[in-house]
Design a protein around this nucleic acid. Sequence first.
RNA 1: GGUGGCAUGGCCGAGUGGUUAGGCAGCGGUCUGCAAAACCGUUUACUCCAGUUCAAAUCUGGAUGCCACCUCCA
Length: 480
Amino acid sequence: MVLRLFNTLSGEKEIFFPLNPPQVKMYVCGITPYDATHLGHGRAYVTFDVVRRYLKFSGFQVTYVQNLTDIDDKIIKKSEINTKSENQNIKQKCREIVEKYTTEYFEVMDQLNVLRADQYPKATEMIPDMIKVIQRLIERGCAYVAGNDVYFSVASFADYGKLSKRKKKDLLAGARMGINESKKDPLDFALWKGAKPGEPSWSAPWGEGRPGWHIECSTMSNKLLGETFDIHGGGRDLIFPHHENEIAQAQAYNGKLFVKYWLHNGFVNINQQKMSKSLGNFFTLKDIFRKFAPLVVRLFLLLTHYRSPINYSDQELASAKEAYNRLVRFIADLDFRLQKTNDSAPQIELVGLQDELLEFKNKFITAMDDDFNTAGALAEIFNLVHYCRKKMEAGEIERECLIVMKQTVEHLCGILGLMIKTEAAVSDKITPEVERLIAEREIARKAKNFQQADEIRQKLTLMGVIIEDTPQGTRRLKNA
RNA sequence: GGUGGCAUGGCCGAGUGGUUAGGCAGCGGUCUGCAAAACCGUUUACUCCAGUUCAAAUCUGGAUGCCACCUCCA
């Protein structure tokens, strides 16, 4: 089994060879905490969470760094809107905004079961490093000071456009960027932005100001992961200009290959149109979670390959919810059967089952090895569940077999970060009252007093308790 | 204008040059006192036109349609 992944740089799937196996260093562009965390963030970070988990499963030791852009035009802009009336310090307000949305980001990501990165460097904590890089770029003639700003000279970097597959002249032809007199070339981008009075700023040889967005990522990733590292990820909108600019800066700085594999996730669409702030059609994760459980959202995201666009709709989420319930029911049924069975399986039968289940696992791995095909991998999980169901249907399933089935399904789901939460199935609604009613109904059923049995079921339903009659007895299910 | 990508059954969505993706929904059936779940079945699915091939939805060319990036954006 060989892991292949689609590298934006080459435009094709490549066999994954890390620079220093089994070490894998990966960097993913993080958020600018100035607004609510939305479904697009969910898609990006779930995607790279799966990448990270799968690499680990494949035996690699992953170091995962994700930055936090805690100083930026958008944060300042937001702070200005809020401070005008309150006569509050902009710097203070910026800090508050960053803190608020960073906290929210982590809360939401935890709910999606996204594992924490190893490090979350903040831009403001590495400004001296960025200044050093900018200085050297100026010395090398790759950057220049213009007024209070410093710009990177795109003309100085021959490979510019390699990642986004664009030629400089094509970029210029379609350039929609406004005229900025201090730039020598419209393609040049800011490494350092001079501060206006009152704005958060840091001292630099060329004046008070703040770092540009691109220099932040290349400096921090280089510092924490080395001059060349394995994987750099982000949303596909970051390919140009952000990642293109990162490459230009980093390689102009040290002349080394910056990143070996570039991975980019596709977008979330609403009605076939990109979800975006400017279109005002974005959904925050908090809002979505009011309608759908976080793990259902996670499953929804994994049901589509990470590079394809994914369309958001309540109907599709509802479909994902049912799919998730299918997994929950399976695990819950296993748990229920485990309570009722004490039969032991002969060793030979158990080994046979394990071998058969291994085939599903291998297919799962084949799918994942093919550029993290989570949709195909999930299909194998469902096939596995179906296979186990049929075995159970056929009867005579012993304890050990049930345990192996459960472990296999949970293991594969776990690789995708998909926890199957069955706690909800046996809910806290089991009160003595409920117990009594169920027992009463059992007696009624045995006496073939079905009218009374149905009445009791009706009563339980109203209490939010769904019951199910099985050959092994009546069981409670929580109302979904 | 430039660049890149996508077109699969009622909906969503994988995939391979010839053999069942999967999920959701519907319909029929089995089981069940009923219900639910589960299981079984479900009528030529691959935008169009050429070409390559014994064989193409899968490769090549063209057409059409849709989307994204070129501006902050995951």
